[in-house]
Design a protein around this nucleic acid. Structure first.
Length: 642
RNA sequence: GCCCACGUAGCUCAGUCGGCAGAGCACUUCCUUGGUAAGGAAGAGGUCACCGGUUCGAUUCCGGUCGUGGGCUCCA
């Protein structure tokens, strides 16, 4: 028998008999300790089981319990264990669909007449614990698609049969543990004992293959770890994340509210939230002015004809609120601002000399969202976009995109966001515009991204039908990612509205149009902001920057003087002069996450100073009032840049 | 829209195996004037989401509606 040469990546190759298993090879190639925590290896591009026979020279990279990849493999195995437990408890009439590892764990979809209840969780967990204790080995075998079909058909597992029917390969692999056989690519842990900590976390409905035309399956979400301590940490982090939930903080800090009587997905901004919004808007307007934008205001409704012309009724109609008749003319609430901006463009003939035209508006739009998707500030039915439209010549496209990215990142950074995922979406199957335009525009987006030195992911075919786009997504503390910024090229509306300009050649041309929103929606952005800072906003944004806490009534006059002075100096100051103990007042101010507490006792009155307590519990040395006011204004300038 | 769970005072939550509803915090009043995360007492506050049904009687059981949460789908 021939020999093959194997090595740990970066290590010395050694000779082994042809067909030796990965596990046998590891016994020679790595230490015992290392081998015991290895659950699979990477072979080239592929991850394979330890039992895999090796038939060619190769470099092996062990996947251990210490790695992300190892965790994923184990979680995928945990999904199999859960499916085994479910079938054992609820009988073989339960149909299994798919069960992959996901970000924080795994899930498995089941088709069962009776709904699972949270009470079932304990039973399933107990059964999984037994399976884990038995450390049943995972075994793999390769069969033909026909054999696999016959096997699963025999078990009545119709979803597996359906999956097999679409596979364009001759053979598939089956994994078995404890008598449960699943169609699966693998790899898996060597035995169930690797699943040291297992927990079911939630129950949800999910359509078969994600298509709402299909039957709804029951999805059980779980998570698993190699070490029970990690599970505990994970659950602790979930609790911590809940504390930053913008819905909870929004109520506690009195930033915004959503009332049944008003309607779902409709936001009421309370005074403190409204104040913050004003600060955000002021900042936004100033930055835009500096970058050569002009501001517009447009109405909330328009004649239905406008939406006909724009095409929104055709491609966006199901997201629009229904029409209302006014003097026998039909009107509709706006889901977007663009048609208004185009109408302003069209008030007269435009020249290439005016380009680029950059028009921005904080435009409030209304979109019908299905009830199930509404979520605090993140997903609402009425929201204000920080919208803008840029009209330019094709050759200006790249530079304009670059400018937008520049402004975009600058603004995000001011709000403390430096981590985000960038996506470039290219042409979908259904599209308007010429091949040449698409190619040019997509190239321009790419070049701008590269020139800005940004790494991005390509999302092929995920562009809007009217043009390619760049999306920037910010992650919240619960790990959900929210799209805020979007930059889209549009070949459609200029055509539909017959937009024109006179070029250098004296002839009519069609302008290029860019839609863009940086914060996306003020509501969503505010939600992300609340979670990002856990409600402890930077000084320039804090609705209350400082609160005066007097110790006894004998400082009331001085408190009033300090209050007036700080107000006069432009500090957002509040005072708590209630007849309460200092401890009590500090606790409240702390819970309100006010950056500075100004403690006033007899000492401060005498010295004409304030003692500053920070929200992290530290104290600054006593200082005169003007010095404190100066400190605040300096900090704001430093954060905001002006 | 679909699946599962939930909806009791402003907030967090008890409770009623069907018999006119409870705590803590917040709020009001009084006492207390106290230096870095809750001083004490009293008071007020709820058609138990809404609409129907079963019942002598429903906040409790059943059905529907609305809303919320977590998912699916969709998106700023």
């Amino acid at each position: 028998m021939a020999e093959i040469s194997l090595a740990i990546a970066g290590g010395e190759p050694q000779r082994f008999p042809h067909g030796i298993s990965v596990e046998e090879a590891l016994r020679v190639l790595v230490s015992n300790k290392e081998r015991k925590r290895t659950l699979a290896v990477q072979l080239g591009e592929d991850l394979v089981d330890l039992s895999t026979p090796l038939i060619a020279d190769a470099q092996l990279s062990p996947i251990t319990t210490e790695s992300e990849a190892g965790l994923r493999i184990m979680r995928h195995s945990a999904a199999h264990l859960m499916a085994q437990a479910v079938l054992e408890i609820f009988g073989p009439e339960v149909k299994v669909a798919i069960g992959p590892a996901v970000e924080d764990g795994f899930y498995y979809d089941f088709d069962r007449a009776e709904p699972f209840t949270p009470d079932d969780f304990a039973r399933i967990e107990a059964r999984v614990a037994e399976i884990v204790a038995a450390a049943a080995p995972f075994t793999r075998r390769t069969v033909t698609v026909a054999e696999a079909k016959e096997f699963f058909a025999g078990q009545g597992q119709k979803y597996k049969v359906e999956l097999l029917a679409e596979m364009a390969v001759p053979t598939v692999t089956l994994y078995e543990q404890g008598g449960f056989v699943d169609l699966c690519r693998g790899p898996h842990v060597p035995n169930a004992g690797f699943v040291r900590a297992f927990k079911l976390v939630k129950l949800a409905g999910a359509y078969w293959r994600g298509d709402e035309k299909n039957v709804m399956l029951q999805r059980l979400y779980g998570t698993a770890f190699f070490d029970p301590k990690d599970l505990k940490t994970y659950l602790f982090h979930l609790e911590e994340a809940k504390k930053r939930d913008h819905r909870k903080l929004g109520r506690e800090l009195e930033l915004f509210t959503i009332q049944d009587q008003v309607g779902p997905g409709l936001i009421l901004w309370q005074p403190k939230g409204a104040l913050m919004r004003r600060l955000i808007e002021d900042y936004w307007k100033e930055e835009h002015y500096r970058k050569g934008y002009e501001l517009l205001y447009t109405p909330h409704i328009a004649r239905r004809d406008l939406w006909q012309t724009s095409g929104h009724l055709d491609f966006y109609g199901e997201n629009m609120f229904s029409a209302m008749d006014i003097d026998e003319v039909s009107y509709q609430l706006k889901p977007m601002n663009c048609p208004f901006h185009i109408n302003i463009y069209k008030t007269r003939m435009r020249s290439y000399r005016e380009f680029p035209i950059r028009w921005a508006e904080l435009g409030t739009v209304y979109r019908y969202e299905r009830t199930g998707v509404l979520h605090g500030l993140m997903r609402v039915r009425g929201f204000t976009q920080d919208d803008a439209h840029i009209f330019c010549r094709p050759e200006q496209l790249e530079e304009e995109i670059f400018n937008i990215l520049d402004l975009n990142l600058h603004i995000l950074k001011t709000f403390g966001f430096a981590d985000y995922d960038i996506y470039l979406s290219t042409r979908p199957e259904k599209f308007v515009g010429s091949d040449e335009h698409w190619l040019q525009a997509t190239e321009a987006l790419k070049l701008a991204l590269e020139k800005k030195g940004l790494t991005y992911r390509l999302d092929p075919g995920e562009g809007v039908f009217y043009g390619p786009k760049i999306d920037i997504k910010i992650k919240d503390v619960l790990g959900r990612s929210w799209q805020c910024s979007t930059i889209q090229v549009d070949f459609n509306l200029p055509e539909r509205f017959e937009m024109r300009y006179i070029g250098e050649d004296g002839k009519e041309h069609q302008p290029i149009m860019i839609h863009r929103a940086l914060m996306g929606s003020l509501e969503r952005f505010f939600g992300v902001l609340i979670e990002h800072y856990a409600g402890a906003f930077p000084v320039w944004l804090a609705p209350v920057q400082a609160i005066i806490l007097n110790i006894t009534d004998s400082q009331l006059d001085y408190a009033e003087k300090v209050y007036e002075a700080l107000r006069g100096a432009g500090v957002r100051v509040a005072k708590d002069t209630r007849n309460e103990k200092l401890n009590y007042k500090i606790r409240e101010a702390q819970l309100q996450k006010i950056p500075f507490m100004l403690i006033l006792g007899d000492q401060e009155v005498e010295a004409g100073q304030v003692t500053v307590r920070l929200r992290d519990g530290k104290n600054l040395p006593p200082m005169p009032v003007p010095e404190f006011a100066g400190m605040i204004s300096n900090e704001c300038v430093a954060s905001r840049g002006w």
